[in-house]
């Protein structure tokens, strides 16, 4: 088996060796599929169903970009990455973009030579405690035992929070999220802390979710967003403005239901016309078709639709929009204008 596989690999290597690394957009078009790095599985954000079809909030963004560039929201090769392999996969060119709830930090943006093109989910570290503990605020947690994943920023945030509030705590170090759930349910710790979206998903999987409360305090900023490699700004623009198109579509009430109608002919609203390509040359500026944004929005709906379908209040995860509401409704989701 070794010889034959090796041989096959050699031929592939030989055929591809001459191919210089062209612009990512050209590569994607030539390949016919978008290589999108996602999580190996995160409730609501990226997970495959029984038929192996990926769904989720991050997956929706991959599909939107594929629809904008290639006109087909299924032309995506989902490449699962772990927390440890995600950055090398992107840096080595194995994937074209990474949509894997990655926190936008200074060092990742600058030192690791990536370009975060926006934020699609504003997360933050929160706490979950059993209802019978009778805690209503994280400030009442003095002396508590806390289940926490080791080696993450949550560990450092936790230390900062307790120190700045002059409280003491006893950490129960845990390796994986699954282990943390079991430990927490078994009563090994009073409180479980991780990103608020993860807490909500964890709570949803409990037998009696109502027995556990999410405390109101959010102790860190975790802006999660898609990222691309440094050095190919044209490609970065495409991913950035696809995300912005989804956000703008929600702001302008363009949904997957009414988009056909709105795109059929110019409407009274010039911004919708520019967005959907019935007016102006925005698509050509990106090197895409005029109806690129229309296809991206039609792929899975606008930002709000994606949110509601995958992680919103009607799903088992049941996340409220909160910070992720449109700026017009008091949230932080805000797109620069399409002009």
């Amino acid at each position: 088996m070794k010889t034959s596989v090796f041989f096959g690999a050699l031929t592939v290597a030989g055929m591809a060796a001459g191919m210089a690394s062209a612009a990512t957009l050209d590569d994607v078009k030539a390949r016919g599929t978008l290589n999108c790095g996602v999580s190996t599985g995160l409730v609501g954000f990226a997970s495959p169903d029984a038929n192996g079809v990926w769904t989720g909030f991050d997956v929706g963004l991959c599909r939107a970009v594929a629809a904008a560039v290639l006109g087909d929201s299924d032309a995506v090769e989902f490449i699962p990455t772990t927390g440890k392999t995600r950055f090398t996969a992107l840096a080595s060119g194995e994937i074209d973009m990474l949509a894997r709830n990655t926190t936008w930090t200074f060092s990742r943006d600058v030192d690791l030579k990536f370009e975060f093109v926006g934020t699609n989910y504003y997360d933050g570290q929160g706490f979950m405690a059993p209802r019978e503990l009778g805690v209503s605020s994280a400030l009442e947690l003095d002396g508590a035992t806390v289940c926490i994943q080791t080696g993450t920023t949550t560990e450092l945030n936790l230390a900062d929070f307790f120190r700045s509030n002059n409280m003491s705590y006893e950490p129960v170090p845990i390796e994986t999220n699954a282990e943390a759930q079991q430990q927490y349910l078994a009563g090994a710790c009073d409180v479980f802390t991780t990103d608020a979206s993860g807490l909500a998903a964890t709570r949803a999987s409990f037998e009696v979710p109502g027995d556990h409360v999410l405390l109101p305090e959010i102790v860190s900023k975790e802006p999660l967003g898609p990222l691309v490699r440094h050095g190919d700004s044209d490609w970065g623009d495409i991913v950035r403005w696809t995300l912005n198109a989804l956000i703008t579509a929600e702001e302008l009430d363009v949904t997957s239901a009414n988009i056909e109608e709105l795109a059929a002919s110019p409407t009274d609203n010039p911004e919708i016309n520019r967005l959907l390509g019935t007016e102006g040359e925005l698509g050509a500026m990106l090197g895409l078709d005029a109806d690129w944004a229309m296809k991206a929005i039609a792929a899975g709906g606008n930002y709000g639709e994606l949110f509601e379908k995958n992680i919103g209040e009607n799903t088992p995860i049941g996340l409220a929009r909160g910070l992720n509401a449109q700026w017009t409704e008091g949230g932080l989701i805000y797109s620069p204008p399409f002009r």
């Binding site: 999580s39 190996t40 599985g41 995160l42 409730v43 609501g44 990226a46 997970s47 495959p48 169903d49 490449i79 699962p80 990455t81 772990t82 440890k84 392999t85 994986t176 699954a178 759930q181 079991q182 998903a201 964890t202 949803a204 999987s205 409990f206 799903t315 088992p316 995860i317």
Partner: peptide
């Protein structure tokens, strides 16, 4: 499974436990 190949354990820990339907079945 730690280098994101979906062997049986990777399959369980990643894709299957991360669906909303089966999160919590260990």
């Amino acid at each position: 499974s730690v280098i994101s190949m979906f062997d049986i354990l990777g399959m369980i820990r990643g894709p299957i436990l991360s669906t909303t339907a089966w999160n919590g079945v260990y």
